[in-house]
Write a protein that binds this DNA or RNA. Sequence first.
DNA 1: GGCGAGCCACAACTGATGGTTGTGGGTCTA
DNA 2: TAGACCCACAACCATCAGTTGTGGCTCGCC
Lengths: 311, 311
Amino acid sequence: MDLDAVRTFVAAADAGQFQEAAAALSITQQAASKRVAALEKDLSVRLFTRTARGVRLTVDGQAFLPHARELLRVADRADASVRPGRRALRVDVLSRRVVPAVLLQDFYRTYPEIELDVVTLDADVTGAIAAVEAGSVDATFHAIALPARRVPATIRTTWVIDEPHELLVGPRHPLANARFVTPARLVGHRIWMPGMAAGTEWADYYVELAAAFGLTIDVIGPSFGNEVLMAELAESAELATLVGERSRYLWPDSYDLRRIPVHDPMPIYPMSLIRRADNRHPALGKLHDYLVARRADLSGVDVWLPQWRDR
Amino acid sequence: MDLDAVRTFVAAADAGQFQEAAAALSITQQAASKRVAALEKDLSVRLFTRTARGVRLTVDGQAFLPHARELLRVADRADASVRPGRRALRVDVLSRRVVPAVLLQDFYRTYPEIELDVVTLDADVTGAIAAVEAGSVDATFHAIALPARRVPATIRTTWVIDEPHELLVGPRHPLANARFVTPARLVGHRIWMPGMAAGTEWADYYVELAAAFGLTIDVIGPSFGNEVLMAELAESAELATLVGERSRYLWPDSYDLRRIPVHDPMPIYPMSLIRRADNRHPALGKLHDYLVARRADLSGVDVWLPQWRDR
DNA sequence: GGCGAGCCACAACTGATGGTTGTGGGTCTA
DNA sequence: TAGACCCACAACCATCAGTTGTGGCTCGCC
């Protein structure tokens, strides 16, 4: 199926004749006729009945028309998704399972008319900022809310996310039925964070958290995927892991895992929206305002934040 | 943008290399490379970074990928919409504003996974039945519920809709604030049904209704479109029209029109789902059952039904 | 009734294009 | 260092999508 043929079909259906459709597409009437004939042959169905006054849709043509329009619309959007200047808002997230991705989905549900492309650069903070500076993405999320890190002058950051952490455990774990836990109560328990490459901001966070409260957080061992992690957790009476409150680690509800809130203090993972100061993409402003408005009010709550002193 | 190129792009993104993608599409590696290169040139953007081990998506490629998949999906659906044997359920309605279309939309909302094409044949009952017999549509809706009309043996009909009629008037009409009216109270009022070509089943219905209660229903004059009708109604202190309870005649809420129910008796427009007895399209059964289940229970209600004796 | 207007389809031609084979260059591995 | 593996470029060729030219059909109007 050829998109040009589909375009010609739609134009002809709108115009009611090939002549005018051809003119609109800057081709000859014969070319338009040929295109539609080729499309009809391809679909092995007749789309128009030809009359002396023009063309009229057949039943098949009528059924095909809305699909054809949809096809052209999608093609246009696909084109727009990469066309510099008019492209959709493009936001980088570390993973599609953690908070930023969840918030982006909520944002999209609130403003379905805003074109949004979510990508994962697989880069560290520096790489992501470079991508933002280069303009290949409009925004990214990283934990640079605290003063420890310098960013180029062209980059603007806004602290928009405070993600509380929860303990994720299986039913046989001693804390499985706790209503909440304090960091102090986690001392001695094994907390497992596989697949956390040392040096990433997440690893840094957990290392600092462990140091602050004397916890044992294993970042060793490669991750064999989240499926495996979930299965192991569900089985084990000792293992636990930490996840963001709004992260999506439980889609296959097949595992009987429990999320236990952590209080007093509540470990917060801070994240900023990072964008170029001169990026005037209208949707970017909306996203910024949306995130700011949704930011939780933690005043009065006893929270713990990392310092990232050594970065 | 060429769909074959898009297909190649998706295959290559999935495979991580051109070689394998090309094999899957039964073309040479060089052809695949060329296709993607052409697509990149067309979009004037780089979709892959080429390495010695294969290809990896660029940011643009990553953003483009979901759109590309969607594009192929839509193309497939478009194709299926006319491909005999595997095509979507195709239902004929007289107009997209009257009950059957509304019910089809509800049906689609209930079963979004069912592919559905709504067409308007612009034919009379006989023509519509012929189309159903020929298999060019799977079903149609017409007012042949009553015994007056014979249908071919291959055709099966089920009375599935009882549509009450309401009076539609502007704010200056004397009945504008009535909670309901009886047909008797409509005597002497001018009821306007423009665009009702004599001989259609709708015209027959209104003629019989007028005769039964001594109403004056003007079917004269061509319709200049519903916009004009709505505007005239909104202005006039005399004109009124009748519409089906669930019909969509008010989308531009700009007109201050009121719907007044008609009782004692309630004029009902009966409609049947008409299909071929041997049509085994699974969605057709679902539609049938859905409509039967939604049919209103009018037992105990004083209704008026046409006889269509002269057909 | 005949004639012109308007539209679509077929035919012949041609330049562009998408496919093929052949080959070279690059990187990773043994 | 050789071989495996993958991508890109070049040359070639068949097909195809566009063009112009023409004929047939159906209206509507003198």
